Measured scan of single mutants.
Amino acid sequence: EAHAAIDTFTKYLDIDEDFATVLVEEGFSTLEELAYVPMKELLEIEGLDEPTVEALRERAKNALATIAQ
């Protein structure tokens, strides 16, 4: 499951495998979680700032909209 989540994140969020791995290690496994989890939870991840989190959430929401079509 972790590998599938990493693949999904790299494909749809335009991030590298290392960043995707950090997200999975922090407990995220779906685009929905990244799109809708409280921003505070993402900001608790070391190295993430508000602009990065906002961009990540926007990419996740856009990916979900694209997949739904």
Score class of each variant (00 low, 15 high):
24 V>E: 02
52 T>Y: 07
27 G>N: 02
61 K>F: 08
29 S>M: 15
22 V>I: 14
21 T>N: 09
48 L>I: 09
61 K>L: 13
28 F>E: 00
8 T>Q: 06
68 A>I: 08
8 T>A: 11
56 L>A: 01
68 A>F: 07
60 A>C: 05
41 E>H: 13
55 A>S: 09
25 E>G: 11
2 A>I: 13
16 D>H: 08
51 P>F: 13
34 L>Q: 00
59 R>F: 04
67 I>C: 05
52 T>L: 10
13 L>W: 01
22 V>C: 07
34 L>R: 00
11 K>A: 07
32 E>Q: 10
11 K>S: 06
64 L>G: 00
4 A>P: 09
61 K>A: 08
12 Y>L: 07
57 R>I: 15
32 E>R: 08
47 G>R: 07
33 E>F: 07
35 A>F: 06
5 A>M: 09
45 I>P: 01
58 E>Y: 06
59 R>K: 14
65 A>G: 06
23 L>C: 02
13 L>F: 02
24 V>Q: 03
7 D>H: 14
31 L>P: 01
14 D>N: 10
10 T>L: 13
65 A>E: 09
17 E>V: 15
14 D>K: 09
37 V>C: 13
56 L>I: 10
29 S>P: 02
69 Q>H: 10
2 A>L: 12
16 D>T: 12
32 E>G: 06
8 T>D: 06
65 A>W: 11
66 T>I: 14
58 E>D: 08
40 K>N: 12
3 H>V: 11
35 A>D: 01
45 I>V: 07
57 R>C: 04
36 Y>D: 07
28 F>C: 02
25 E>A: 14
2 A>S: 11
66 T>A: 13
22 V>S: 07
27 G>H: 03
2 A>Q: 14
58 E>P: 00
12 Y>D: 02
34 L>D: 01
35 A>Q: 04
39 M>E: 06
45 I>Q: 02
64 L>N: 01
21 T>Y: 11
39 M>D: 06
21 T>P: 00
21 T>C: 08
56 L>N: 00
32 E>Y: 13
26 E>D: 04
60 A>N: 01
15 I>P: 01
21 T>V: 09
41 E>G: 09
67 I>N: 06
40 K>E: 13
69 Q>W: 03
18 D>C: 08
63 A>E: 03
23 L>Y: 01
15 I>W: 02
6 I>E: 02
4 A>V: 12
45 I>T: 03
16 D>C: 06
38 P>M: 07
14 D>R: 07
31 L>S: 00
4 A>D: 12
35 A>P: 02
24 V>T: 05
51 P>E: 14
53 V>K: 04
44 E>R: 15
4 A>K: 14
15 I>Q: 01
9 F>W: 02
42 L>P: 03
12 Y>I: 04
25 E>W: 09
56 L>C: 03
8 T>V: 11
43 L>Y: 07
40 K>D: 10
3 H>S: 12
11 K>F: 12
14 D>P: 02
26 E>Q: 15
22 V>T: 10
64 L>K: 01
60 A>M: 01
62 N>R: 13
15 I>Y: 01
34 L>I: 15
44 E>D: 10
1 E>K: 11
67 I>T: 05
10 T>S: 06
68 A>M: 11
5 A>Y: 06
8 T>S: 07
15 I>A: 02
68 A>Q: 12
38 P>H: 08
45 I>A: 03
57 R>N: 04
29 S>C: 08
33 E>M: 15
52 T>K: 08
20 A>G: 02
16 D>E: 08
30 T>Y: 04
65 A>R: 09
28 F>H: 03
21 T>D: 04
1 E>H: 11
50 E>M: 13
44 E>F: 10
42 L>I: 07
60 A>K: 00
55 A>W: 13
32 E>K: 06
32 E>L: 10
40 K>M: 09
32 E>N: 06
4 A>H: 12
64 L>H: 03
29 S>Y: 13
36 Y>N: 14
40 K>S: 13
28 F>K: 01
36 Y>M: 10
10 T>W: 04
10 T>F: 04
39 M>I: 13
47 G>I: 05
12 Y>G: 02
7 D>N: 13
68 A>V: 08
28 F>L: 05
38 P>R: 05
19 F>P: 00
68 A>Y: 07
